[in-house]
Amino acid sequence: MGTASTGESETWTEEDVMFVSGPTELSGILTQPIEKSPHPAIVLLHGSERAGIDSTFYTEHSHNLVKSGHAVLRYDSPGVGRSTGSVIGESLEDRTREAISAVRYLQSREDIVSEAVGLWGHSQGGWICQMAAAEYDGVAFIIPVSGPGVTPAQQEVHRVEMQSRAAGFTEDEVAKAVLMRRLLVDIVLPEPMFKEANMDDARLIGSGPWGNVIEWLYHEKLEPESQFAKSIETLVAIKDESWARFLFAEQILQMFEGLSPETWGNVKASLGAVMTVDPENFLTKVKVPVLAIFGEADAYLPVAKSVDLYRRYLGEAGNEEVAIRIFSDADHAILVDGDPASGYYDTIVEWLSRLALS
């Protein structure tokens, strides 16, 4: 769609772009090397924060990855900046369609090598990389960064445990936080994932707000409309507990304020679908080159388990073009003491440069 120059340096130029995904118009910035086109290209996919083109994190990635000779597209999430639509209620499948639309948009341009457009995705964007590459054979490569190899449900439980431990919680407090996070997951699932573990842990921990949840969730099996009020009661009961700090009950309560018992069923189904997305269903179908990057000190996901699962699933796909890099002391954003881990950008640029040559 229409473009206009927005910026340049000695090594790259930038232009405003617009592309569509279903009914949504998405605004972006395309950063291109100054060398003569056409160029291979890469789309940057946000994590769950669903940022925009002015985000420092994604702007810095654009200006570093363009050094590989690739054009780099970053864009405003739906409802952000000049993009239409909204991220409220979106599924990972919605995000996958959006990513594929971005790839197809770049493939339609004469200044882009249509068969050399890939995806870089951070955190939740790492799942989207996997899903898009499994669904659309026009994705030439993927670079999931801190992209879990486990389901969102498993990742969330791990996050709460690791952040609670890092904050110095006692073992009893960690157990309470993990139990409640697993219960909050099961509330949105059509069939509980953690029923046995939750009931066992509740017996060990003793009385608490989890007892009421176990009763109405596992025994009474209330309809979604009745669960709505019970869920709010639970969040109100735990929001001021010290051990619940990383459950973010206040933020979840804010989400409930915009809902009603009648709409909760649909929202619950959407959240449940997100929680059960399994990378095995996608990585086992990915046959394009993969560079998977992790931070050794990432408190948000099980790094060692994710690495093992990537290797297993991509091996099952018969994919021999897989590189995995773990950065020592780096966190979820591959930062060490607030700065990019040494060699992080060089690793991606060198990998992309070799890919372009091949």
Rank of each mutant, 00 (worst) to 15 (best):
A237N: 11
H46G: 06
Q163A: 13
V174H: 03
L291C: 04
A4S: 15
D200N: 11
Q154N: 11
M275K: 02
F294Y: 15
A41N: 01
I53Q: 02
E98M: 15
Y58W: 14
R203C: 02
F19Q: 10
L301Y: 05
H46Y: 10
A299V: 13
G147K: 07
A273I: 03
I348Y: 00
L291V: 04
M275D: 03
G272K: 12
P192T: 13
Q163Y: 14
N198A: 15
P38T: 05
S37K: 12
L335V: 05
V17I: 15
V303Y: 08
L204W: 04
V43E: 06
F256V: 09
G295W: 04
E257L: 14
L259Y: 06
K176V: 10
A99V: 08
D172T: 11
G79S: 04
L357G: 06
S358P: 05
E225D: 15
E90C: 06
I326G: 00
E35L: 00
L73E: 01
V267R: 05
D76R: 08
A153H: 03
R95W: 02
E10F: 06
S342Q: 13
K176N: 12
I53K: 12
I334V: 15
V322H: 01
E225A: 15
R181C: 02
K287W: 00
E10A: 14
A299Y: 12
A51K: 13
A116Y: 10
W264Y: 15
Q155G: 09
Q254S: 13
V336D: 02
N319L: 05
T31R: 03
L26E: 07
F169Y: 13
S123N: 08
D240Y: 13
L45Q: 03
G147I: 10
P279L: 02
A177T: 12
T234L: 15
L309G: 01
A341K: 10
A341R: 02
D331G: 13
I88P: 00
N212T: 11
D201W: 08
G22F: 10
W216T: 12
K195G: 03
H122R: 04
A273G: 04
M255G: 11
A166S: 14
G138R: 07
L283A: 00
V113K: 15
D339E: 09
I29M: 08
H46Q: 08
A356E: 09
D200P: 00
A140R: 13
F169P: 05
K287D: 03
P302Q: 07
G315T: 12
E233P: 07
L335G: 04
L253C: 12
T263W: 03
W351S: 08
R311Y: 00
L189R: 09
I232K: 14
T276P: 01
E296L: 08
T284Y: 00
I53F: 01
G149Y: 04
E49H: 04
G272P: 10
G2D: 13
